[in-house]
Structure formats: structure tokens, C-alpha cells
Amino acid sequence: MAELTLTVNGNPVRSDCAPGTLLSGFLRETLHLTGTHVGCDTSQCGACTVIVDGRSIKSCTMLAHEADGASVTTIEGIANADGTLHPVQQAFRTHHALQCGFCTPGMVMASVALLARQPEPTDADVRHGLEGNMCRCTGYQNIVDAVLASAKSMKGVQA
């Protein structure tokens, strides 16, 4: 066990965990933030996507200790303080961009990061930008539409 200090969803966290703990396991089991899902073992599916220091990463392929000192944002941390949804969450809802919901947290976090990088993406940009996230339910189209719509709704807001 070794100590680890970081910020998760704006809250300071200090914890002990084994060196072999993956960030996904740390979030789910130590912090009980179970919105981050694990859908594969090979860094393909993207259900575990979270944002570390502003960048989207696959939390199943990062040691928790590598996040020491970092700021981590998970699906639990992006809604507004009053509980209303983040524009990307809202757009996913309006556009029926989720069915079973399992890929959704990773998909939303990937989309948030994508829009930070590319505030005015095209349809093709979004499809390419989501290549690290798999969805088996929706056929992706409504996800793409949700991201394009949130780009519009966020325009100016986060400039």
C-alpha cells in the first residue's frame, strides 16, 4: 500500500492503495464512484473513460498512482451543482443517445473532452473522435447528433 493524493470531481482525496490498483478500480471500489464502467480488458471499449487533468483517458489502463497529484473528473462530477445536467448529458437525453446506459458514462466523458479539444466539430470529426468508445445499442447516430447539438448549445458558454 502506498499513499495517493488527488482531486476527484473537485474534492480532495487522500487514500492508500496497492501499486497495482488501476484508476478504474480505485474510482469504483475505493471511492464507490461506480459510474465509471469496465467493459473489456484490452483498452478497447472506452466505458471506463474519465478526464485526468483535462484529457480523456481510459482509466482501466492507468495506474491509480499515476494520477497522484492530478485532477480527475468522472461522470459523477460533470452535472451542475444544482443537479441539472451538463449540456452534453442533456443532449444525450434529448437525442436518445443511450439505450442500456453501460457505455454512456465513457461516451459522455469522451464527448466532453472532444468538445474541449474541438468546439465546433463536424459529423466526421465526432465519429473519428469517438473511435475509442464502443456502443452496441444505439448505432452511434444519436450519439453523434447529441455531440453536435451540445457543441451548438455550449458555443459561447465555455469559450
Partner: peptide, 14 residues
């Protein structure tokens, strides 16, 4: 059901 899924509050088997 989207409200809970979108906030990471879905409850799956794991």
C-alpha cells in the same frame, strides 16, 4: 431512465 444512467447512477451487476 436516462436521468440515472447519465449521472453514472445506473446500477449494473458489478
Amino acid at each position: 431512465e436516462d436521468q440515472r444512467f447519465l449521472k453514472g447512477q445506473g446500477r449494473y451487476i458489478d
